[in-house]
Nucleic acid binder design. Structure first.
Lengths: 199, 199
DNA sequence: GCATAAGTTAACCATATGGTTAAACCATAA
DNA sequence: TTATGGTTTAACCATATGGTTAACTTATGC
């Protein structure tokens, strides 16, 4: 039952780290969440830092791997954009705290990103570059495609990370209305991007 | 020199909290930054929580007050958008960690936002609503103006908060090139928004 | 100048935190 | 059954952390 204990700890750690971040998470809290004795965290992962890195690496690579198949498929670049946007809104909707977790941690400790890119076979980087190329192929505007890509990312991520503020101010703090807004956003963001890339 | 000591502590706290967040900041570190004995932090602000709230409130209200004069001026809505975008890219450029600080803290503790909105005379909310109205006036598209506003915010903020990742992947980790990209962005975001709001 | 209030310091406090340790427990093989 | 290796536990450890305290220093008012 070795991997079962390790998995339980990992899953608990993932949940707590995503919600609280490296600084806010407590080993005892993770142990409680896993239903394990705190010493086991050190037995299996040796330190808080190691545990965190395992979690961050997993989350980071999975976050960007979701569209790998899409990017390597034979559909048109335009259709890839569509699938990409749909996929990511769904993905973030079901893991709403993950973008904020990633952004917070890469700002808190930029070295974690460098280390990760070096260790992870550079796959997330490759995926982001492939994605960039798809956008570039479709971009008929005069604008540097990096502006398009980064704007698209901002449009996808921001409604989630800034949710507490935006929901309060523009949606009367009504969670259901905001959820509905997020669903609408699939079509809206697609239309926006296509508008931005046209000549 | 009462206010001078208090100010020194406040300024130090602001710097450390913005960089480290509430969870990551240490009172001893703030005291060291201020060149003061740690007990003074409690003497003047009573607790870490109080000190943090003072800082957060100040930063939050100032962040949104920057365009107050613009919003109340007599220029056209379209020109207001232009000034708004210019102002915010400049503001964020000179305080690059502030958006991330705000986003992180409103996610870490959403109650801080509720309390703040109640205490601060609701000014940031009013400003965001006024801004929304200006966008709505200019929006000839079929799209709900909230989508436009939120997309604009995402476009303004995201390049800063995700800088470590974006710079590494799309800019060969060259800081100067990224800074140049950010400067370009003033014109680019304006053009993008005008494209999005046209019929 | 004196009394008092406000500001400052160094030492201290109670608890939290990540981590360690030795013993107990469990599973398996001989 | 015993030996062995792996897993788990409860207790413990050293340091960090936010906060307190009493003594000292400085500023202020009369």
């Amino acid at each position: 039952m070795d991997s079962s204990t390790e998995d339980k700890i990992y899953l608990a750690a993932r949940r707590i780290f995503v919600l609280k971040g490296m600084e806010g998470a407590r080993m005892q809290e993770i142990a409680d969440e896993a239903g394990m004795n705190k010493a086991l965290l050190h037995y299996y992962f040796r330190s808080k830092e190691n545990l965190f890195k395992a979690v961050f690496k997993d989350i980071f690579t999975k976050f960007f791997s979701k569209v790998k198949d899409t990017l390597f498929s034979n559909i048109t670049s335009k259709d890839k954009l569509v699938v990409f946007i749909d996929s990511y809104i769904d993905l973030i909707s079901s893991n709403p705290y993950v973008p904020q977790f990633i952004i917070n941690e890469i700002n808190r400790d930029p070295k974690v990103l460098k280390t990760l890119m070096f260790e992870s076979g550079i796959e997330p980087q490759k995926i982001l570059e492939l994605f960039f190329n798809e956008v570039k192929l479709e971009n008929s505007s005069e604008v540097d495609s990096r502006h398009i890509v980064i704007s698209l990312m901002g449009m996808l991520v921001f409604p989630f990370v800034a949710r507490p503020l935006l929901q309060m101010i523009y949606f009367n703090n009504d969670s259901e209305t905001y959820d509905h807004f997020l669903k609408e956003r699939k079509e809206v963001v697609k239309n926006m991007i296509f508008k931005l890339i046209e000549a």
